[in-house]
Design a protein around this nucleic acid. Structure first.
Length: 483
RNA sequence: GGCGGCGUACCCAAGUGGCUAAGGGGGAGGUCUGCAAAACCUUUAUGCAGCGGUUCAAAUCCGCUCGCCGCCUCCA
């Protein structure tokens, strides 16, 4: 496997710290508001990495945190007139609601900052003892000048940063780039006892503390959005390595942003779409597919048009499943083949290999999806040749199995066509029940038998106006939701 | 200003030294069909922002130019 490592700026062969085991930490969210599609991207990307490592047979341990104490949470609490921990709880619930819907699995450990105050204090104390940090008016700062490798992740130089720095001038700091490990709390703010008085942890220290506790001093993969490279991950490296004296993380992986009109989607610009808003218009599988159809490090331009294309692609898949299922239910007593058989057979033989090759190359989900659609095209072509017999049913069944298997790594393509159409009916507000549709189909069937084409076409038109497309097949009429 | 990234067809998007430049969406024509739909076939990039260079060979490596974006402040 090759993974792009932000630290070295190259794709590298993945060699775990311990053979057969992978330990990954991904920065979760600060729980002060609803998640937007950008948060979903990060969550989906790391979820797929986890699924793929497990698919490859690794013993995988995944930690994803919640930042549940921070300025934004405190501000939100003031604004809403509730306690800070109620804010955190509320948005943790919202996070789970969204991520569960999107098919993002839970991490093995989901630690919260406030549950690791003891560990945080221990590290801060250790850093002070080692001379890497200093106390000033009840706060503790990390002294960046004392960590010679500061800037190695974000590839910047301390002097350059200071030159045009847009950093708050703070008289208590020895150097403007020094950052808070521990913050003295103001009156009325949440606070914990510490050797430096009442206070709360700085932002970066929690991830060092929680990863150290749950994954150890050195672990394999640490990830998050590309905007966390500096200062968050840079600071984590400084704290952790200064504290343990050991390398912190082997591979740093960062996902790209979602953009709107080419600009980064962000809270401050106000150009964001929440997961809930998008779920009102599109099914969760569509969102997932959309996010995985571009490589995780590239930017993705968000638009309804893009989501509609993703929806059409998924629909193509389920339409094919329906077709293979119809085929498998047919009489297979006669052996009949066609020239496409060889192509399909070859592709089936090397399909998982191609899938793995794509995923092994820095999790190229876009290519993997392309491979799946190649198989879909070949199987459709094969079915057009009207094959029959034991061998063809086996090949068709294998096709379905392989797509399900690889789809499960991406967590897409894992429903029945009926479930997909039901989901579409819901999201597109089709004002008809499945029974209504079946009744119309029956009515049209009588008309067709009587060769009353005008009547038959009228029924079809009526359904089409409501978003239901009919498909006449050899042994009956099927329906689907127009995408 | 410093650092980093991107620019592939009408749109989205893989490909990063050598087989006809994946795949999806859209358009046009066709096969099938009572007519449709779906599916399939043909077609839509002799060319990968532009210009030079390295090489037997480049979308892929190097240089320059243009354009877009990100980080440098909280941010997935």
């Amino acid at each position: 496997m090759r993974i792009y490592n932000t630290l070295t700026g190259k794709k590298e062969e993945f060699v775990p710290v311990e053979p057969g085991k992978v330990k990954m930490y991904a920065c979760g969210v600060t729980v002060y508001d609803n998640c937007h599609i950008g948060h979903a991207r990060s969550a989906v990307v790391f979820d797929v990495m986890r699924r793929y490592f497990k698919y490859k047979g690794y013993d995988f341990r995944y930690v994803r945190n919640f930042t549940d104490i921070d300025d934004k949470i405190i501000n939100r609490a003031k604004q809403d007139g509730i306690a800070w921990n109620e804010v955190a709880e509320k948005y943790i619930d919202a996070y789970y609601r969204d991520m569960d819907t999107l098919g993002i699995g839970r991490a093995d450990v989901e630690p919260k900052a406030t549950e690791h105050i003891r560990e945080i204090i221990d590290i801060v104390k250790g850093l002070v003892d080692k001379g890497h940090a200093y106390e000033a008016e009840g706060s503790v700062y990390f002294e960046v000048q004392k960590f010679s490798e500061y800037g190695k992740l974000s590839k910047r130089d301390l002097d350059d940063m200071l030159a045009g720095a847009r950093v708050d001038v703070d008289e208590r700091k020895k150097n403007p780039m020094d950052f808070a490990l521990w913050k003295a709390s103001k009156q009325g703010e949440p606070a914990w006892e510490s050797p430096w008085g009442l206070g709360r942890p700085g932002w970066h220290i929690e991830c060092s503390a929680m990863s150290l506790k749950h994954l150890g001093e050195t672990f394999d993969i640490h990830g998050g959005g590309a905007d966390l490279i500096f200062p968050h991950h840079e600071n984590e490296i400084a704290q952790s390595e200064a504290y343990t004296g050991k390398p912190f993380v082997k591979y740093w992986v960062h996902n790209g942003f979602i953009t709107v009109d080419k600009e980064k989607m962000s809270k401050s610009l106000g150009n964001f779409f929440t997961i809930q808003e998008i779920l009102n218009k599109f099914d969760a599988e569509v969102i997932r597919f959309f996010l995985l159809s571009t490589h995780y490090r590239s930017p993705i331009e968000f638009s309804d048009e893009q989501l509609r294309e993703a929806e059409a692609s998924i629909d193509r898949y389920y339409t094919t499943v329906l077709r293979t299922r119809d085929f498998l239910s047919q009489d297979q007593s006669k052996d009949k083949t066609n020239p496409e058989e060889k192509n399909l057979e070859d592709l089936l033989t090397k399909f998982t290999e191609k899938f793995s090759a794509a995923m092994d190359d820095d999790f190229n989900t876009a290519l993997a999806i392309g491979n799946i659609f190649e198989l879909i095209r070949v199987v459709n072509k094969y079915l057009d040749g009207k094959p029959s017999g034991k061998k063809s049913s086996e090949m068709i069944a294998k096709t379905n199995d392989l797509i399900m298997e690889t789809g499960s790594v991406l967590n897409i393509f894992n429903r029945t066509p009926e479930e997909w159409y039901r989901a579409l009916m819901k999201v597109k507000n089709i004002g008809l029940s499945e029974e209504d549709i079946q009744m119309q189909i029956n009515e049209r069937k009588s008309a067709r038998e009587a060769k009353d084409w005008a009547k038959a076409d009228a029924v079809r038109k009526e359904l089409e106006d409501k978003g239901i497309i009919l498909e006449d097949k050899k042994d009956g009429t099927g329906w689907k939701v127009r995408v």
